[in-house]
């Protein structure tokens, strides 16, 4: 794939990737991280699966967000190793629009937030979310069901 071909194919995904990032990092960081996503995508372009370029980009973007947060905050690895990764939107960012939802959102597990965010914000189907998260569609379906149920229960409280 030539640079021109890559650009033609991936330029259309710039906005959804930017919004994905904007939901998870400061707006001021979006452009730099977006560039980083496409740099990595270019260098790993042979790994992309035709028709699933966007979920693949979301997966890369998830790593980029995780790395960006890591750069921003360091902790000792022993403590860190006890918790799973999280690149979902923070409760604070959601609180701007819906405080009750934000409070419930904060009580979800990291995996539940990540799955729910990809479906609700990015609008992905189960198979696409699975590709973005690097897990099976089965696991996404289960996580999504649990996340919805838990969130609904939390919102009742």
């Amino acid at each position: 794939m030539t640079p021109d071909e890559f650009s033609a194919l991936y330029r259309q995904h710039q906005t959804p990737i930017a919004k994905f990032l904007a939901r998870r990092v400061e707006f001021s960081e979006v452009e730099d991280l977006c560039s980083e996503v496409f740099e990595i995508a270019w260098s790993k372009r042979v790994d992309a699966v035709a028709g699933f370029e966007l979920p693949w980009l979301y997966r890369i973007a998830g790593f980029v967000v995780a790395n960006a947060r890591r750069r921003a905050t360091t902790r000792n690895r022993f403590i860190a190793s006890l918790t799973p990764p999280d690149h979902s939107p923070s409760a604070e960012s959601i609180a701007v629009a819906d405080i009750a939802l934000a409070q419930a959102w904060a009580k979800l597990g990291a995996a539940e937030r990540a799955t729910l965010a990809l479906v609700a914000f990015e609008g992905l189907r189960v198979e696409e979310a699975a590709a973005a998260l690097g897990i099976s569609a089965n696991a996404v379906s289960i996580r999504l069901h649990r996340a919805r149920t838990k969130l609904a229960e939390l919102l009742k409280d």
Partner: peptide, 28 residues
């Protein structure tokens, strides 16, 4: 429920049009 979550989109105030038009090309 999903609609309520979607309505709280944290990127609501983000304007993607402000990004560089050559972002992808520059990254490559």
């Amino acid at each position: 429920l999903l609609a309520r979550v979607a309505a709280a989109d944290p990127s609501a105030g983000f304007d993607a049009s402000t990004l560089s038009a050559t972002l992808v090309d520059d990254a490559i």
